[in-house]
Design a protein around this nucleic acid. Structure first.
Lengths: 189, 189, 189, 189
DNA sequence: GATGAATGAGAGTTCATTCAT
DNA sequence: CATGAATGAACTCTCATTCAT
């Protein structure tokens, strides 16, 4: 609370004028977080046509999100859980959960559309794919952030370069073989 | 420190006889953690022949590791970072970093061997692949753990089932197309 | 202050336009309190003729007062003290003290009139009797309130029944033996 | 807690080494309190033979108790309630309640013995008398304490003198008329 | 070699009070 | 005339750390 107050430019006591307690503040931040992520991904998907381009903009959306709101990013991964669906939670938590569902809805549409176009594998099971996709994507971004220096030293890649490679790998896990994207930048000939 | 002391069967004060402070204890635990992970993966790789089987045992190794030492697992992801390489860190942290390097060495050998056998894509760039592989693998496990309930309710899969699907996806991101493993369990019969 | 402001229908800040601080508000409430008690007892005494009936209406007056203004009742017992007589107190506190004096005046008249009628013991020393009477009476009411449940369970009497017995006891402490009231309800028939 | 810590000569943090929380401290103090009161009254009753003398020693016991442990005295009146009998309370609270019951037991024996000797009224109902007796007795002591100065100025009696008069009055409320104690000090001729 | 006893610093929270508007 | 906005000081409680024995 000291930190939040300092960041907000107010005294700790002032926070309690506007919020019930720390839990409420955190849940409101989480909700903000989810909404921003939603917007980020929605606009990313809207601006692109091809499956690969849309895929890349989803990745970039999450990257930008993590860069702009690292605290929110961590929160989405750590704090948001099932209990949000049930009754014993703040209204903000319920809403957070709902927005999360909408995000999954968007990814679902993206996957189906990509499968219909023949860009993504037809045997993908939608729901398991969505969640594992999130897990892997956030895993890449998280690691690229935490070990940025280490990777630069050891691998010789900047954070964006490293992630780009990871996103390419991840795409291979959902792309259809017959569409030639699997080969990536190194095997163009 | 209370918990650690209780678990160690000593009094809190005694801990400070043997360790400088909490940070040192944590760094030692982290080292233990890394060593256990090393053993886990080493034996996993040794017991298998085929690339796919070895891949799966790596995944299983990390899963068991997370199940048995959730605290260590979290620590490897969160706390272990570049600074370990530099001078301003405890000797245990340096050692932890070294063990991490050895683990990467093992994964490197696994990847190269798989590529040579034609099971894994020949265009994989070793180092970027290693680290992104870790990022994605831990991302799957982490998510499967944090959102177990949610996934059960929404996706209808148990945690192991869900992770199995994820591991399959992840394998697709490194496997060579011509080896028929990409289609996974659905096409085995 | 929040509660007072809400109850008053004004904002907290507005309270400070009209009152110096919380202490002043409390002292004004205490004065109100004293006045209400005065009225309560005055009308109680006026409506009855016989000593016993007047006695009972005094008791009932204090009981109703406690029931209607528990906060005031507590205040009279706790907060109102000697300092009110001296200089270092708010004007309201002085006034509160004065009203208290008037109440004692009324009790004094009641006692004297009762003694003259032969209902009360002639050897009562007025002032010590007044104050001890207040002490005992409020002691009964206070205990009946605080331990209502306990008394119900242990003694098997409701709060009013219990207090009635107490008031009867208290009357015995001032009544003249030769007037037959001492035996109370048990000997009326 | 600041005050308790200061009084104990320790820091606030130290209190939490020995006690769970404030509630526990308070409940332990309350229990101590009750035990001391028990001892006080028990020895008072044991050292006297005649009913009047025993009565006076009970009063004196409670007075000394209030003088020595004003905080405990207040606590017994305010904080100890029925919930202590039930399950949702600390063990100390249960014990406190039990000691209270034992005290009442002693008063009961005193009353019965007094009635048998013919010193106390035979129509006293034991339980209602016990509790009202406590209410009135503590009411006298409480008032004598809170308004000591005021009584000195207005009534012209010291606190002990004032209470003595009150105890005399209270005795009249339980004494049998035929025993000549009712007349008190002023009517000796 | 081990610990009982103690604590400073800081956490989340509450509340009477202030002041510019 | 009234208040929205803000806070210092106090509260209960926690935890890593110290030190005499």
């Amino acid at each position: 609370m000291d930190d939040i107050a300092k960041a907000a430019g107010y005294s700790k006591a002032t926070l309690y004028v506007y919020f019930e307690n720390k839990e409420e503040i955190v849940s409101i931040l989480a909700l903000e977080s989810m909404k921003k992520l939603y917007d980020s991904i929605e606009s990313a998907l809207a601006q692109q046509e091809s499956t690969k381009a849309r895929y890349e903009s989803i990745c970039r959306g999450l990257v930008h999100y993590q860069e702009e709101f690292p605290f929110y990013f961590k929160m989405v991964l750590d704090k948001i859980n099932v209990d949000f669906e049930k009754g014993d939670c703040l209204p903000e938590e319920k809403e957070t959960w709902r927005v999360g569902e909408e995000i999954n809805e968007m990814i679902r549409d993206f996957l189906i559309s990509g499968m219909e176009k023949g860009d993504l594998r037809r045997d993908l099971e939608i729901l398991p794919t969505i969640f594992n996709f999130w897990g892997m994507l956030s895993g890449i971004i998280r690691l690229a952030d935490k070990k940025e220096e280490y990777i630069k030293n050891t691998v010789g890649l900047s954070r964006p370069q490293f992630m780009e490679y990871g996103f390419h790998m991840l795409y291979c896990s959902i792309a259809d073989d017959r569409s030639n994207q699997k080969t990536g930048r190194n095997v163009d000939e």
